[in-house]
């Protein structure tokens, strides 16, 4: 145990850990948003609601079908991603040639509908979801106590984020995605079904949100409002990182989670506003975000 500026290492690293956990969720959610914005040019306000649905699917799998956490990690992103595919196919695809505002309004409306339906069915007090038995308990690192589940969330999120970044920046499929972001008509004329690729990309982005939802379920309670609580911060992360920037979303997500956690230690009053203060400063200095490219 040691102290910095009168703050114990337990308190400091405890908040740092919470910051990293929040950062992991910010990174995964903003990554999905960045992928969707990059490809579809849609500001997806449904993203928070789909994160919430991901958590609820895990809860329902456990309570209705007896399917546990590990399978939920696989099934929930697929089920929620399939819902995303339907949303893209039957709704968003019809707005492709219209102004951004229409997509924004549609996804905002859908988010309100999803939230309303889940509140009607499950109330808004939150439902408990236990972490898997393999990840209960924790490890004493000497300077702090590290709960196993939280260590798992941070490392797994990091692997998923870096895997997604690698797939987009260093694979053939990723080059199709990047090229289609620039000039979809030409990519289509090379023989690639861009329309299908857009639908699947949306489904993938939604699947990432659902995966974050499953990871979050044992930490926060499963709550119909969990999406709307986090989505505004995630949008701030995307703006700070640079709209559409994959690596920007990941780095900014984790960094802002940590910044928020450290603010809680040193100046708790500012902890809920620090991200928005950073956003305002970044927008003043670099309107395209830290990692964004000017068009």
């Amino acid at each position: 145990m040691f102290e910095i500026l009168g703050i114990t290492s337990q308190a400091l690293f405890g908040q740092l850990l919470i910051g990293l956990i929040n950062g992991a969720f910010y990174a995964m959610l903003s990554l999905g948003l960045a992928v969707i914005f990059g490809m579809l040019n849609i500001i997806n306000f449904t993203h928070g609601a789909l994160y919430m649905i991901g958590a609820f699917v895990a809860w329902m799998l456990l309570n209705y079908l007896g399917v546990g956490y590990w399978w939920a990690l696989v099934i929930s992103p697929i089920v929620t991603g399939a819902l995303g595919v339907l949303i893209e196919r039957f709704m968003l695809s019809r707005l492709r040639d219209l102004d951004h505002l229409y997509g924004l309004l549609l996804t905002f409306g859908l988010a309100l509908i999803f939230e309303g339906l889940f509140r009607q069915k499950f109330g808004s007090s939150g439902l408990p979801y236990r972490p898997p038995a393999e990840l209960t308990g924790g490890t004493n690192l000497g300077f702090m106590f590290l709960p196993n589940y939280r260590a798992w969330v941070i490392s797994f999120s990091l692997v998923v984020c870096l895997g997604t970044w690698y797939a987009i920046e260093h694979t053939r499929l990723g080059s199709y995605l990047r090229a289609a972001t620039e000039n979809p008509a030409l990519v289509q004329a090379f023989g690639i079904n861009v329309s299908r690729m857009i639908t699947l990309t949306y489904g993938f982005g939604v699947g990432l949100a659902a995966l974050a939802g499953v990871l979050a379920a044992p930490i926060y309670q499963v709550n119909p409002l969990m999406g709307s609580n986090i989505i505004i911060v995630v949008f701030a992360v995307v703006v700070i990182g640079g709209m559409g920037s994959i690596l920007g979303s990941i780095i900014t997500g984790f960094a802002l989670g940590v910044a928020e956690g450290l603010t809680k230690v040193f100046y708790p009053e500012a902890s809920s506003t620090v991200i928005f203060v950073i956003m305002a400063i970044v927008l003043l200095i670099r309107p395209t975000g830290l990692f964004g490219r000017s068009s």
């Binding site: 053939r172 080059s175 199709y176 990047r178 090229a179 972001t181 620039e182 000039n183 030409l186 990519v187 090379f190 023989g191 690639i192």
Partner: peptide
């Protein structure tokens, strides 16, 4: 020409299936 700025020369070359 339709060269993609987010792709390097090799990726541009290998893009069309």
């Amino acid at each position: 020409r339709g060269i993609f700025s987010s792709l390097n020369v090799e990726e541009n070359l290998l893009l069309p299936p």
